[in-house]
């Protein structure tokens, strides 16, 4: 099962928005089953980095290779990659005009060409897994933020991805709903899902991450196991950042 080469390879990846350089010389390898937490101040490029992995943003320097497929303008390759990479957004981004069940079935039917009955079973399976099967017939707006985010996770899982990307999945949530989402993520990690999470939930990082990456001004500044990262950060910027977010 384990392939000799990493599932995700980023080689000297750069990205510009106009003249602003959002990413500079990013090198990152992620192996199958690895759990990475990415943190850093806002504007540091962490979201841009994971958005490049499923090409919601196009990198303009370097190479990104996912499971042996290099990300280029080739649509066929891109679709192959997107099927393998699930993504969860800060603002949930559920399809507002569809019921929860249809949110989970749409891409299965259109992209995976799964027959309707099977897609429905898969959808219900993952709704059970995120513990809200009873909401299947409702519309997104009728759910709480935490429930919506769990649905969004289930929707991505329905595509049976190899990797899950999380872009600040708890930042838009009320405090009392953060845990229910983190629990689902911890559960996922326990099952061996390869995950890259942009998050400031340091408790999650400590307990789940194999590696923590700290980014600032578009660069990876520090990369270490959580133990080392939190107790003995080497870089000054990392120290400053940690002191700011762990102060309270």
């Amino acid at each position: 099962m384990t392939s000799p080469e990493p599932l995700i390879q980023m080689l000297e990846v750069g990205k510009h928005f106009g003249t602003f350089q959002a990413l500079k010389g990013i090198n990152l390898n992620v192996s199958k089953g690895e759990r990475i937490v990415v943190c850093g101040p806002s504007g540091s490029g962490k979201s841009t980095m994971i958005r490049c992995i499923n090409r919601l943003e196009k990198h303009d320097q370097g190479r990104i290779i996912i499971d042996g497929i290099e990300l280029t303008d080739d649509l066929k390759d891109l679709n192959a990659v997107r099927r393998e990479v699930g993504m969860v957004f800060q603002s949930f981004n559920l399809f507002p005009h569809m019921t929860i069940l249809n949110n989970l079935m749409l891409a299965q039917k259109l992209v995976r060409k799964t027959p309707k009955a099977e897609a429905r079973d898969v959808a219900m399976h993952y709704l059970e897994r995120v513990k809200i099967p009873e909401q299947a017939g409702k519309y997104p707006i009728q759910l709480s933020g935490g429930q919506q985010q769990r649905v969004a996770i289930a929707r991505a899982l329905c595509m049976k991805p190899e990797v899950m990307l999380f872009d600040e999945p708890t930042s838009a949530l009320d405090p009392e709903m953060i845990n229910e989402v983190l629990e689902v993520m911890v559960d996922l990690a326990r099952d061996g899902m390869t995950m890259i999470c942009v998050t400031h939930e340091m408790g999650f990082a400590r307990s789940v991450a194999d590696r923590v990456i700290f980014m600032d001004t578009g660069e990876i500044v520090e990369e270490a196991e959580p133990e080392t990262f939190f107790n003995a950060p080497r870089n000054e910027r990392t120290k400053l950042f940690l002191s700011q977010i762990l102060k309270h």
Binding site: R82, G86, M87, F89, N93, P96, L106, A156, M159
Partner: peptide, 22 residues
């Protein structure tokens, strides 16, 4: 909402599929 379309894109929906279904 752009985010809704991005979610469709991330799930692998093609541009015409996003236009028709979202």
């Amino acid at each position: 909402d752009r985010g809704v379309l991005e979610a469709g894109e991330a799930l692998g929906l093609s541009k015409p599929q996003r236009f028709i279904y979202l």
